[in-house]
């Protein structure tokens, strides 16, 4: 079996985009190490056809451990499966996504496998000469970048921020094997029961997987004004984020909060309106690809870290921006094409 593994993730039988991003990372490492790359899927209901797309995006081998008892993530059973596979095949490197699943499963497995694990990596490389994995991650709220290695333990494990890299272009001619691995009953731990998702959750948002996040802060002045951000987010194919101040005032729900005590995001585009850019907020957005700031205060910290800042009244700016985007949409005759947030990896490549 291959020595570099990436963990694919699925939700309700569909592979998540991060699975392809990880393969891009893994491919580069496997090539440097002159070894094979495998993608592991633990889950249920993912079609053969979808699994094949993992090969198209860089995997030499795909190991699919699928069973109804794996449909939803529960740490104990997933951990048993992965620990068992590690013992059997002894990979050198395992990359997982820094998602709620990856960040729960990987530390659990690392302890049981006596392996080193680095969280939330933004860069990965191979050390020339030794072949050790060099793992670089932001620490202390993004104030420093630490490079970490695990010289004496295998596997070398890392979680990688979703959206911190792009998947490789799909290549349907790539050859690779998809191997179904049955779930051994002894690996099933039934102590924790997954009951599905709460159906009545209001004001929930999946910020982590949005390509565009339009966030608002105290400068939005009141709850009703968040509709402006929602309209902009809709036009851009994105989701609405917020600062702690906005959440604590009850303008939007906690799932929208970005930052130290909220979510960490790396969207392709982050737009902050009426946000000062406190260090605790920046901790959650620093790895965004493009940062836009709209703030009347020229000295606002968010302007300092922005790629594009507008010093002005956010209400005027949002109105004009919305008008122009609607105009463009109208001009194209029909609905917008795939918004940035929903493009499939294939479409993006």
């Amino acid at each position: 079996m291959s020595f570099v593994w990436t963990l694919a993730e699925q939700h309700e039988g569909r592979l998540k985009a991060v699975s392809y991003e990880l393969l891009g990372r893994g491919r580069a490492l496997a090539d440097k190490l002159d070894t094979k790359l495998a993608s592991l899927l633990i889950g249920d209901g993912v079609s053969e056809e979808q699994l094949q797309t993992l090969v198209h995006h860089g995997a030499d081998e795909v190991y699919a451990i699928q069973d109804p008892r794996l449909a939803q993530f529960t740490c104990e059973t997933y951990s048993n499966v992965l620990v068992h596979l590690i013992k059997t095949y002894r990979p050198s490197v395992i990359l997982a996504a820094a998602t709620s699943t990856g960040r729960t499963l990987m530390p659990h497995v690392a302890v049981r496998s006596h392996a080193g694990l680095t969280a939330d990596c933004t860069e990965l490389d191979i050390e020339p000469g030794t072949g050790h994995l060099l793992q670089t991650r932001p620490a202390i709220g993004g104030n420093i970048m630490a490079t970490i290695k695990t010289p004496d333990h295998r596997p070398q494990m890392a979680t990688v921020r979703p959206k911190s890299s792009r998947p490789l272009p799909a290549d349907a001619t790539r050859a690779g094997r998809v191997i179904a691995v049955p779930l051994d009953d002894v690996l099933v731990d039934e102590r924790v029961k997954a009951r599905g998702y709460r159906g009545d959750a209001v004001d929930f948002v999946n910020l982590e997987e949005a390509d565009v996040v339009v966030a608002g802060g105290r400068g939005m002045k009141k709850a009703e004004h968040f509709a402006l951000l929602q309209a902009l987010a809709d036009a851009l194919g994105g989701a609405v984020g917020a600062t702690r101040d906005a959440v604590d005032r009850g303008w939007v729900g906690y799932p929208h909060q970005v930052g130290l005590s909220g979510k960490t995001i790396s969207p392709r585009l982050y737009i902050g309106a009426g946000i000062s850019g406190a260090i605790q907020h920046l901790a959650g957005i620093k790895t965004s690809e493009t940062i836009v700031s709209i703030n009347s205060d020229p000295d606002a910290s968010l302007h300092q870290v922005a790629d594009f800042g507008i010093v002005g009244d956010l209400f005027q700016v949002l109105e004009e921006l919305q008008r122009r985007l609607d105009e463009r949409r109208g001009a194209s005759g029909s609905d917008a094409g795939p918004p940035a947030g929903t493009r499939t990896p294939e479409a993006r490549a």
Binding site: M145, A146, K149, T150, V305, A306, F308, G309, I310, V311
Partner: peptide, 22 residues
């Protein structure tokens, strides 16, 4: 198991454009 081999301070500013709109 993990060893920190290097620590660097990332650039804070991105050298972005700032446009004034009074």
């Amino acid at each position: 198991p993990t060893k920190v081999v290097k620590v660097a301070t990332p650039r804070v500013t991105r050298g972005g454009t700032l446009v004034r709109a009074p």
